[in-house]
Amino acid sequence: MDLKYHQFISFFEAEQAEQLCQIAITENFPNQKILFEEGEKPDFLYLILVGKVVFKKHIAHNQYQTLAQALPNAYFGELGILDGQPRSAQAIVCEGSTLAKLERQSLMEILLNAKGSTVLKVFGYTTQRLRDSTDQYVKQLIYKEKMVLVGEMLNTVIHDFKSPLSGINLSSSMVKELHPDLETVEWCELIQAQAQRMSAMAEELLEFSRGNTVLRKKPVNLAKVLERFEKLNHIYLQEAQVELVIKAVDVVVNADENKLLRVVQNLVSNAVEAFNHPGGRVEITVGANGRWGRIKITDNGPGIPEEIQEQFFEPFVTHGKRGGTGLGTAIAKSIIDAHGGDISFESSCQKGTVFCIILPLVSS
């Protein structure tokens, strides 16, 4: 955006606004550039023209808590400018950004000569931003407490699962040995695969609660992954009366196959549970574009409600699902992010939902 249209500049009378534009230093900053550290002496007020800046508080050795973020037309650093006290948080560029910097001494001289209405506007904006930061921080604390409870519960569940899952595996192995015909062997292998999935799902949820996604990456053919997915979910989809269509070519990505299956499982299960009419259909296609492999999951369901679309990948966001935890899509995003990929969607009540997942191809 043009500096002269920035909201901070608009707070001032025309003459002072012109002065601010003249003293402003406009710079481009790369992604992950640290603008200032917590405890540093304040020297500039920053106006965001393009990009995003995130603010983090140091909580332990090499550990930071995200407090808030600022987007274009916002400004930050005014508290240090006004009271001269050290910076209260770290500011780091989250995207390639263009910022305008206003030097403290020059800015204070202009503020001292500003009208009372201008000062009130600056004060009002600062107060609202402090409120927003406080709300976000409280939400993060609540989220952490929830995840601690989830982790404690899962530790118990995983421990209790071990005995019955071992019994299921042992029993299916014995049945397979006693009845080595092809059909029985196939059913026993399906039982064992589903038992292993139950254990893996619990472990993945535990990893998520700890904020630690462990990947065992190797070259994976996406067509083979979907073939395995179809085999594991054939009965589930048949009972739900949902048609599954897979259109896949051989695309090889560097990925953790089991966790990739978990992502597809979560998204397809959400679609199946959302169908409120006969004729449910899910189509999964695989392709490649440049350095990326692509998975598209399309359904003809009722779409994702507009009120949760912006927060759809956040933990504990759910809508209309009995017993839903709101963690499935958050786990899916964390897995794709850990792979260095991206997940996005488009959704409407008229057309259903399309998820698009991209993952880096195996380097040739």
Score class of each variant (00 low, 15 high):
residue 216 R to T: 11
residue 204 E to W: 03
residue 193 A to E: 12
residue 229 F to H: 15
residue 223 A to Q: 15
residue 234 H to A: 13
residue 42 P to C: 05
residue 264 V to Q: 03
residue 138 V to D: 13
residue 43 D to P: 00
residue 129 R to Y: 05
residue 130 L to I: 13
residue 112 L to Q: 13
residue 30 P to W: 04
residue 338 A to E: 12
residue 48 I to D: 03
residue 271 A to R: 07
residue 127 T to L: 14
residue 214 V to W: 00
residue 86 P to E: 10
residue 47 L to N: 07
residue 88 S to R: 08
residue 234 H to S: 12
residue 14 A to D: 12
residue 85 Q to V: 03
residue 310 E to P: 00
residue 16 Q to D: 15
residue 298 T to D: 08
residue 136 Q to E: 13
residue 143 Y to V: 06
residue 227 E to A: 11
residue 137 Y to M: 13
residue 8 F to M: 13
residue 153 M to K: 11
residue 94 C to M: 12
residue 75 Y to N: 06
residue 239 E to V: 15
residue 123 F to Y: 12
residue 11 F to M: 11
residue 304 I to P: 01
residue 148 V to M: 08
residue 16 Q to T: 08
residue 331 I to M: 12
residue 151 G to F: 01
residue 307 E to N: 11
residue 363 S to V: 09
residue 138 V to C: 05
residue 35 L to G: 03
residue 99 L to D: 02
residue 40 E to F: 02
residue 205 L to G: 07
residue 111 L to I: 15
residue 241 Q to E: 14
residue 261 L to K: 05
residue 197 R to W: 08
residue 114 A to S: 15
residue 188 C to F: 01
residue 280 G to V: 07
residue 60 A to I: 03
residue 258 N to C: 02
residue 167 G to S: 12
residue 21 C to E: 13
residue 192 Q to S: 14
residue 152 E to S: 11
residue 353 T to N: 06
residue 173 S to Q: 12
residue 245 V to P: 01
residue 108 M to T: 02
residue 130 L to T: 10
residue 197 R to Y: 08
residue 98 T to E: 14
residue 320 G to N: 14
residue 130 L to R: 02
residue 333 K to Y: 03
residue 104 R to F: 00
residue 193 A to T: 12
residue 202 A to G: 09
residue 126 T to N: 08
residue 252 V to H: 04
residue 196 Q to A: 11
residue 134 T to D: 15
residue 106 S to M: 06
residue 300 N to E: 11
residue 45 L to G: 10
residue 359 L to K: 01
residue 10 S to D: 08
residue 226 L to T: 10
residue 343 I to C: 01
residue 327 L to I: 13
residue 29 F to E: 05
residue 317 V to D: 05
residue 212 N to D: 14
residue 121 K to R: 15
residue 325 T to C: 03
residue 19 Q to W: 00
residue 137 Y to C: 05
residue 73 N to T: 07
residue 135 D to W: 06
residue 351 K to M: 05
residue 220 V to C: 09
residue 306 E to A: 14
residue 333 K to Q: 12
residue 203 E to C: 03
residue 86 P to Q: 06
residue 355 F to R: 06
residue 181 D to I: 10
residue 299 D to G: 09
residue 73 N to K: 09
residue 243 E to Q: 15
residue 238 Q to N: 09
residue 231 K to Q: 14
residue 226 L to R: 09
residue 303 G to E: 03
residue 212 N to K: 14
residue 259 K to T: 09
residue 38 E to G: 04
residue 151 G to W: 00
residue 194 Q to F: 00
residue 139 K to F: 03
residue 221 N to E: 13
residue 158 I to E: 10
residue 103 E to C: 02
residue 328 G to D: 13
residue 256 D to K: 05
residue 124 G to S: 14
residue 233 N to M: 10
residue 165 L to W: 05
residue 335 I to W: 00
residue 167 G to A: 12
residue 80 G to S: 07
residue 67 L to H: 02
residue 106 S to E: 15
residue 119 V to D: 00
residue 280 G to K: 02
residue 67 L to G: 05
residue 194 Q to R: 14
residue 77 G to E: 04
residue 130 L to M: 13
residue 360 P to A: 09
residue 73 N to I: 04
residue 53 V to W: 00
residue 177 E to N: 10
